[in-house]
Design a protein around this nucleic acid. Structure first.
Lengths: 198, 198
DNA sequence: TGTCTAAGCGGAACGTCGTTCCTGTATGAT
DNA sequence: ATCATACAGGAACGACGTTCCGCTTAGACA
């Protein structure tokens, strides 16, 4: 495996201490600003919150999307790891799928505008998009396959589409009390069930 | 009712001929640019296509969203009017609902980025959002109520949420061949059906 | 401890966007 | 033909993401 901080290798030199400190500060500042102003908050605001210049942000994170990924990486990881666990502990694969999707919806709806930014094709957000999907689609596929093999859901649904659909349904879940994303996702998952007539 | 072009009243003076001509030109230019570059095309591009200055656009349409509304108004109108017709001609209310939703999905997915811009809370897009929903939600509610009274779908689903859900599912339907919005909407509508147990 | 090199920093600067504003022009009533 | 005024054009503004460059300073080596 590759060395974690470069101490083990001679080619990889460790980052300077102030750089490390700044990266941490930036992640914290970004997380704080995302909570108050949403994920689409201006880069300058994050820089101001962290007390650094905008250039510093771009030194550590090539683009805004990379910063977002870095901030939420461990939460995505946790969600991904919950998949197999739920499959093992739930009464049926379909129940596990439902609970796992709930977890994902929780994650998306508690971050202002995260869902909205995930589908965005704007400048370089493919990174974000790709990371989320690469990490979560396989987990979803596993659950989906299990439910299909158990005969609970109609076969032929691809996990990628389902994840995109659920993500889309969560867009605008905040800032519009009339729209209940969770209910809509519930309907979508219910629609997955094997229909009455063969 | 209010006079259509101001000729009937003396208080309302008719617009100048060149202004009328420019408004038409603008609508055509906008429609053309929306097809090639998507709904989020820069205002300057539309102005260039029409051969006018940017100021001229804002004279006729207070904001970008108003222009979008104007371009698609008659299509939205057609969709709205199709609702009652389908209800009358279909085998069941649920079938009518499904076909009407299909119409809506067709509309959204054939306009690049329209769905995406509909949920946007950015500067003044509430106009667009409001117009679409004000016009279509009642139609949807009518179909939904009919299907609920017929016992086909579970009660308690509100039309507003459903429309937002369908709209959201259509986001990014173009420019990503791996995502099939229509299938997802199909699942959502299937999830509306009365579940097996009471 | 002193020196020096390059990693790192801040923020000015650039290009793009939506929108506003001001000036000159051309319409159409008189 | 005259003229008030509705209108068009595009420069200008502020906000954004991103890039660039000159100064600062960490930290390896002597």
């Amino acid at each position: 495996m590759t060395e974690i901080d470069g101490r083990a290798g001679k080619a990889a030199r460790p980052k300077r201490a102030d750089a490390r400190r700044n990266e941490r500060t930036l992640l914290d500042a970004a997380a704080a600003v995302f909570v108050t102003s949403g994920v689409e908050a201006p880069v300058r605001d994050i820089a101001a919150e962290a007390g650094v210049g905008t250039g510093t942000i771009y030194r550590h994170f090539p683009t805004r999307a990379d910063l977002v990924v870095a901030v939420y990486r461990h939460q995505v990881e946790a969600c991904a790891e919950a998949g197999p666990a739920l499959l093992a502990s739930s009464a049926s694969p379909y129940a596990a799928l439902g609970r796992w999707i709930d977890l994902f919806v929780d994650f998306l709806t508690t971050k202002h505008g995260l869902a909205a930014v995930m589908r965005s094709d704007k400048a370089g957000f493919e990174v974000l998009h790709a990371y989320f999907l690469d990490r979560l689609v396989p987990v979803c596929a596993r659950l989906l396959d299990a439910a299909a093999e158990a005969g609970e859901v109609r076969p032929g649904t691809d996990a990628y589409g389902l994840m995109r659909g659920v993500g889309n349904l969560c867009i605008g879940a905040d800032n519009d009390p009339r729209y209940d994303a969770r209910r809509m996702v519930g309907l979508l998952i219910a629609g997955l069930l094997q229909p009455r007539s063969t």
